[in-house]
């Protein structure tokens, strides 16, 4: 059996572990086991990926995994119970950043087709928004910046301009997808600004809902990275997190007697109410 076959069969087992893990996380009696099951699925996926024949050198992988594990274990152990939500936001931001970098790195693997270029733009864009949005959510919750909603006149206009810039640069990049494309740099920069703009108009009490939404985005970013790399497991797990994250966000909104749209577009609404 070739390594690709072994890897893909193991990926099916990992995907199953994620599905059942998520299901079990939804009920108090099985939640802890569910989390452990999903962690086992992740470990399996990582171990079999190391069999990939495209991987020629393990030096940087070993160094990076070691650094990441030490930081991950220390922060997870040392953080105070009360500051868990902002820790989740921070981890989530790192996940988004990783998807951004994976999409970008894929550009150096040879010529990219238009489809691959579009998926690269998506993973970079969603990853960037997740990164900066999560950092703002973390800063707000840990009181590194004022927790209340920040709004200003013409915010909707500025956001519109940002979206337009993103779309234009994305289109220009797709026409000539190379690693050092200025348009890609523009997409990275502007998506980071966009993430900030999406989260600053949202006030402290809504922050857990926003983190849940950003969690859903980080899943979508991983899903886009899966399309870039042609990797089924990334697509399935990313889509699972993206979809279940949206549902969880909705449930959390309902628990607060708010609608999802109300939180999603609260920036624009806040401007309206402040000018009215």
């Amino acid at each position: 059996m070739s390594s690709a076959v072994i890897i893909n069969f193991a990926y099916i087992a990992s995907a199953l572990a994620f599905v059942f893990g998520l299901k079990m996380l939804g009920s108090p009696a099985t939640a802890r086991k569910g989390n452990a099951l999903s962690a086992i699925g992740m470990l399996l996926a990582i171990v079999v990926t190391l069999l990939d024949q495209q991987i020629l050198t393990f030096t940087w992988i070993a160094v990076a995994v070691l650094i990441g594990s030490v930081i991950g274990v220390l922060t997870a152990r040392l953080v105070a119970m009360t500051s868990m939500p902002e820790m989740v936001a921070l981890f989530n931001g790192f996940g988004g950043a990783a998807s951004l970098l994976v999409g970008w790195a894929a550009l150096f693997g040879g010529e990219a087709s238009s489809f691959v270029a579009i998926t690269i733009v998506l993973s970079v864009l969603i990853g960037g928004v997740t990164l900066s949005g999560s950092l703002i959510a973390w800063a707000k919750l840990s009181e590194k910046m004022p927790g209340k909603a920040i709004t200003f006149k013409g915010q909707a206009f500025v956001n519109g301009l940002i979206v337009l810039t993103l779309v234009l640069n994305a289109i220009w990049f797709v026409q000539q997808p190379v690693g050092d494309s200025v348009y890609l740099y523009a997409v990275i920069g502007v998506s980071l600004v966009f993430g900030i703009m999406l989260v600053i108009p949202i006030g402290g009490a809504d922050m857990p809902v926003v983190i849940s939404l950003l969690n859903s985005y980080s899943g979508l970013a991983a899903c886009a990275a899966g399309f870039v790399l042609n990797n089924n497991l990334l697509i399935v797990s990313g889509a699972l997190v993206g979809a279940s994250g949206i549902i969880l966000t909705n449930i959390m909104c309902k628990a607060m007697n708010r609608s999802l749209a109300n939180v999603l577009f609260s920036g624009f609404k806040a401007v309206k109410t402040s000018t009215a």
Binding site: Q54, T57, A98, G109, V241, L248, A255
Partner: peptide
């Protein structure tokens, strides 16, 4: 369970690590 579920699914989104491993080890540029 809202916060643990969010946190648990956030860990799953770290699956992008699988893609990152290949980029880091493929010796492209």
């Amino acid at each position: 369970l809202h916060t643990p579920l969010m946190s648990g699914s956030n860990a799953i989104s770290g699956i992008t690590l699988v893609g990152a491993l290949v980029s880091a080890g493929a010796e492209q540029t």
